[in-house]
């Protein structure tokens, strides 16, 4: 219990320090771009596929559930709302957590173990500015874009199943999607995505930066990063949903 409090405190301090360094110069523009590419572009395939199949399954499941009270018409709108508000950001976040938290933790952990982080300091470069800040900033900026793409693909997955498998009318399906989706749905989903991007990169950096010694230390850091990022995403998702619900 005591150690949990201490770990939380250390994480909060780490986050505060990281945020401070995001907003003060010098800025490493090239690093930020490189990290955005790494987080966003290279996560597209896995996040896109996840969204595609989720949208497709969602359409089937809602149809089965919906047909019990004869309401097939709601498939399009529920797929859209479900994907945009909830499944796009959460599943996208979890997939990216597995990919990006792990690779950031492994990278920074290796840099810690091979003294590259110490070397940065002796070369008058603050590791928080050069390593941590660009990764977290890239995470916060990139995740909403990634999730917006995932949402589109997810809705398309539902559309494909709806039109080809359930024989819905294509233009009615699109009309139902567009009519029922509100700006609030989309915005709340994208805010979630930004928060998840923060969590994913923060936890990757935190565990990597504080990695223990040797290959084992890096392995532990990587595992801890993925597990803690995933749990925090789900917890933050509940809190955010509660906030949007009350608002």
């Amino acid at each position: 219990m005591l150690s949990l409090c201490r770990a939380t405190g250390a994480l909060v301090l780490f986050a505060a320090q990281a945020i401070l360094h995001i907003f003060t110069p010098p800025y490493y523009g090239r690093e930020i771009l490189r990290q955005m590419l790494r987080i966003g572009y290279f996560s597209l395939p896995v996040v896109g596929l996840t969204a595609l199949f989720t949208g497709a399954v969602l359409a089937l499941q809602i149809y089965i559930g919906g047909s019990r009270f004869n309401a097939e018409g709601v498939v399009a709108s529920i797929v859209a709302i479900g994907i945009v508000r909830e499944l796009g950001p959460v599943l996208g976040g979890l997939m990216v957590a597995g990919r990006v938290s792990a690779s950031i933790a492994a990278e920074l952990g290796t840099m810690r173990v091979t003294e590259q982080i110490d070397a940065l300091t002796t070369l008058s470069t603050n590791p928080f500015k050069y390593l941590v800040a660009p990764r977290i900033l890239a995470g916060v900026l990139t995740m909403p874009i990634l999730v917006a793409v995932a949402d589109t693909i997810g809705i398309m997955g539902g559309f494909l199943v709806g039109v080809n498998r359930l024989n819905f009318n294509a233009s009615t399906y699109i009309a139902n999607t567009v009519d029922f989706l509100q700006a609030g749905d989309i915005i709340s989903g994208l805010i979630k995505a930004a928060v998840f991007g923060f969590i994913i990169t923060l936890l990757g950096c935190y565990h990597g930066y504080n990695s223990g010694r040797g290959a084992q230390g890096v392995g532990t850091a990587t595992t801890n990063a993925v597990v803690s990022a995933s749990v925090l995403i789900l917890a933050a998702n509940y809190i955010l949903t509660e906030m949007f619900f009350s608002a």
Binding site: T114, Q116, D118, A119, L120, T122
Partner: peptide, 11 residues
């Protein structure tokens, strides 16, 4: 300061 690290510590 300049420092040569034990393992090189090249980026």
């Amino acid at each position: 300061f300049g420092m040569l690290f034990q393992g090189g510590a090249l980026f």
